[in-house]
């Protein structure tokens, strides 16, 4: 068994309004920054023991599918590295 860190990145699907990001963008603009757009993502780092990277990725993928992301509004991606 090897210890891996699976990074699950959850973001709103394109086109879904993100009021928190919009508010943050406006606050940056008030500080004088110029920007076209700003997006929030949520990032989860999961340490887990698995036989290989594929198994670690499959398990993290299921975590995203079943809890970390809501498929109605979110896309997600999983990346795995040895811890």
């Amino acid at each position: 068994m090897t210890t891996y860190t699976a990074t699950v990145t959850v973001r709103l699907k394109r086109g879904v309004l993100d009021p928190e990001a919009e508010t943050t963008k406006r606050a940056l603009e008030r500080l004088g920054f110029e920007l076209d757009a700003l997006r929030f993502t949520e990032r989860y780092e999961v340490d887990l023991d698995a036989a290989d990277a594929d198994e670690a990725e499959a398990r993290a993928d299921e975590m995203a599918e079943r809890l970390l992301a809501n498929p109605t509004i979110h896309d997600y991606e999983v990346a795995v590295v040895e811890a």
């Binding site: 309004l17 993100d18 009021p19 928190e20 919009e22 508010t23 109605t72 509004i73």
Partner: peptide, 8 residues
């Protein structure tokens, strides 16, 4: 889904 109000 019920998510963050547009008004934030």
């Amino acid at each position: 889904a019920f998510t963050t109000n547009a008004s934030a």
